[in-house]
Design a protein around this nucleic acid. Structure first.
Lengths: 335, 335
DNA sequence: TTGAAAGCGCTAACAA
DNA sequence: TTGTTAGCGCTTTCAA
């Protein structure tokens, strides 16, 4: 009540003339408390402004009601949506979310896994480029619920949420073919990382379905960024014959590509169709508005949260679940 | 080592044939440990994969090394940048950040303050619309370091970081006047909330400095969103004589305004100049690229983090600091 | 309907 | 250089 630290349950108990046990049960409702006592304690709690320490509670119960969201970068426009989806779903259970930015670094991804386990989070949601199945062993062994996001070959050992990226990109390719495009290029992001080849594979599928050849000079590999898109498009403009359409690894890349096309006064979509991937908020803001493959970030976050909640709150203990969210083509102006 | 829970410091001590104290000091370095013992313990820790429980440590030390970032909505493009700035600064001190979305609801703002205090966070960074000075009493009384973001009249009682919004908007107004605009409108967001009138005040200042009258039919009030910008601009297009420039409460609103202008085939900036506020990432992506007043989200986050670190790590205990970040006009195509 | 007491896993004062 | 022990603030078993 006074003193340096906050007031604790003992202070309340003393003031109410009962034991800590009774105060605890008044708060938790896990055992009946005489109505008069209950009211007295509640009034006192209100008056004193007492809130039990979550830290102490966590130590005792071995539950922290926290979740770690381990992602490359919250400032990348895809992830805030995802984070919000997760938070909205876990919020009613009074669970708080730690957000960890790995910047896609292998070292950092592994470190956060460790750090968050040491913090005693009840669950983790991860988007990782470098971690292998076995890197999660200590996490699952510690009883931490895990949901991995993205595409993984080794689906057996944790819940996963993925997007049908390959199908989505194949559809987008087909869409361009249907619009009469034949010289379809692809601006890709670095491969060799978890699940990132899927978009490229979808592009190949789409070409194959249309009986078009895969031209290696129509495929350029850059970064995930707008700057990458600029570089990639600049490169493609050197190729003869010039492509009449380009699929991009994500929207940021596509927006970079649009920059170059605008400067070069190449009309979109007449001379060059552009298709992105993700449907970040900015996709609808640029002009021409970006035609893109919708990758439901918010839905991914929600779904991951639901998988977590089912285990942490509803005590689901069945087999691992592997959810694949559909994409859909958002047809705007750029293609 | 086995059993249901994780291994603890006692397991390590037993395996090494020393006391917990020695293990603890080997980890913390707070007291010398014989080199041979130290090596043995370190090797054992490595081998067993032991990490001390942060929860137990927090209970003992009364420090959690966590910070709460309480904001309206992480999915609003201004806040991810801010969050990242904060995280980058506190990360080296091994501090983790809880992100809380209030959606600008008074109820929710107050709840998170309470909840995060109960979680024992060492610091808080808040962006609130509704909270008054006194609402933070229990937080500061609990010894939690506090940084409030935005503009406040009651600067005395916590560290604050603000943007020179009023000046920035006045400058933007002057910029338009300098370009020959005389019929300058303003699309505003709801007032009556902390600091939100500053942008409007800056607009008034700018008009006054140029000797232009404030026309009430040139000021429309909508929401903070792109949709709000659409509504606002649609309203302004009804006014006679039609404005030749419009300042917007933020970039999202400005982008909404651009939507309407594009549909109405009104040329920007020739027939109507548009200026936003914030310089979110999308501002440079739209076309015409948005001229806007830069509100350094990342810098705000960084600065807030530095203020926190100075108190939490460097034990600064001097007077409250009130930092005002300058804005600058980012001149692009829309004005 | 209530209380006493143990213990979650650490850290740090005190003792040797 | 190391160990013993108390205790952070709760929850929960056991007992009454």
């Amino acid at each position: 009540m006074v003193g340096p630290g906050r007031m604790n349950i003992a202070d309340v108990a003393r003031a109410a003339g009962v034991s800590q046990t009774t105060v605890s049960h008044t708060l938790s409702g896990k055992r009946p408390v005489a109505e008069a006592t209950r009211q007295r304690i509640l009034a006192l709690i209100e008056e004193l402004g007492f809130r039990p320490s979550e830290v102490a509670r966590s130590l005792r119960t071995q539950r922290t009601n926290t979740i770690a969201l381990i992602i490359p970068d919250i400032a990348n426009p895809f992830y805030p949506e995802l984070a919000r989806g997760l938070q909205d779903v876990v919020d009613p259970s009074q669970m708080q979310v730690f957000i960890c930015n790995t910047d896609g670094l292998a070292h950092s991804e592994a470190d956060f896994l460790d750090l968050m386990a040491a913090r005693g989070v009840d669950g983790m949601v991860t988007v990782s480029f470098h971690l292998k199945e076995s890197d999660f062993d200590s996490v699952t062994k510690a009883g931490i619920a895990l949901v991995r996001l993205g595409d993984y070959a080794d689906e057996g050992t944790s819940d996963t949420v993925a997007t049908a990226q390959q199908t989505g990109m194949a559809e987008a390719t087909g869409y361009l073919v249907g619009r009469g495009r034949r010289r379809i290029a692809f601006i890709d992001a670095p491969h060799g990382l978890n699940g990132l080849g899927q978009r490229f594979d979808g592009y190949c599928d789409g070409l194959r379905a249309a009986g078009l050849p895969l031209r290696t000079d129509y495929v350029v590999e850059t970064g995930y960024t707008r700057a990458g898109g600029r570089t990639g498009m600049a490169t493609l403009l050197q190729v003869e014959p010039r492509p009449d359409a380009v699929l991009c690894a994500n929207d940021l890349v596509a927006i970079g590509a649009l920059d170059v096309l605008r400067d070069a006064r190449i009309r979109v979509p007449e001379e060059m169709a552009v298709v992105g991937f993700d449907d970040i908020e900015a996709a609808s803001m640029v002009s021409p508005a970006l035609t893109t493959v919708r990758n439901r970030a918010y839905e991914m976050g929600r779904t991951a949260g639901q998988l977590l909640i089912s285990r942490l709150v509803d005590a689901y203990d069945g087999p691992k679940r592997h959810i694949v969210l559909p994409t859909d083509l958002v047809s705007r102006e750029s293609a």
